[in-house]
């Protein structure tokens, strides 16, 4: 058996035994047990599997384990010392989900957006988030939540 690869996820080092050509999504969920990242399509079309790799949003169903060199952040890594990330808090406060299956991907994508653009207009949001599907149709509340998170991060940068 090949020696395990090493993956840094949410600031933690993991030895990983899956084949290098396994989808990152599968590794996160099935090997590391980080099931907050969801499968929605496996074709890069829905955004449910979005994670940050080196801070950039990537569809983990389209990334192979062997390609990952930078650290990965998943939804499980956003909460720090019992404090929700401002984006998580805003989603919670504005009830920006129904079944919430899309929520992990939405929150991670929003975090990526706010890193690139701390004060996005609603047009910026719509453009950036276009690749994330919410079948329950919670889009308007998600836009509001991102804007609220932007405000609270401006006051209290993380």
């Amino acid at each position: 058996m090949a020696p395990p690869l090493e993956l840094v996820v949410n600031d933690q080092k993991y030895p990983v035994h899956s084949d290098p050509d396994t989808r990152l999504l599968t590794v996160l969920r099935d090997e590391l047990g980080l099931t907050g990242t969801k499968y929605g399509c496996g074709e890069g079309q829905c955004g449910a599997c979005t994670v940050l790799i080196g801070g950039s949003p990537r569809r983990s169903c389209q990334v192979l384990l062997g390609e990952v060199v930078q650290p990965v952040t998943t939804i499980e890594g956003l909460e720090k010392d019992g404090h929700l990330h401002p984006v998580q808090q805003a989603f919670l406060d504005l009830d920006a989900f129904q079944c919430a299956y899309c929520t992990s991907g939405m929150i991670i994508s929003s975090v990526a957006l706010l890193t690139q653009k701390p004060d996005p207009s609603s047009t910026d949001i719509v453009q950036f988030m276009q690749g994330n599907i919410c079948r329950c149709g919670t889009y308007p509340r998600i836009v509001d939540a991102i804007q609220r998170a932007a405000k609270s991060m401006e006051k209290q940068p993380r």
Binding site: K38, L78, L84, Q88, F97, S104
Partner: peptide
Amino acid sequence: FVTGRHQYTS
């Protein structure tokens, strides 16, 4: 739900 802790069947 916002922390990804909720476990769906999948």
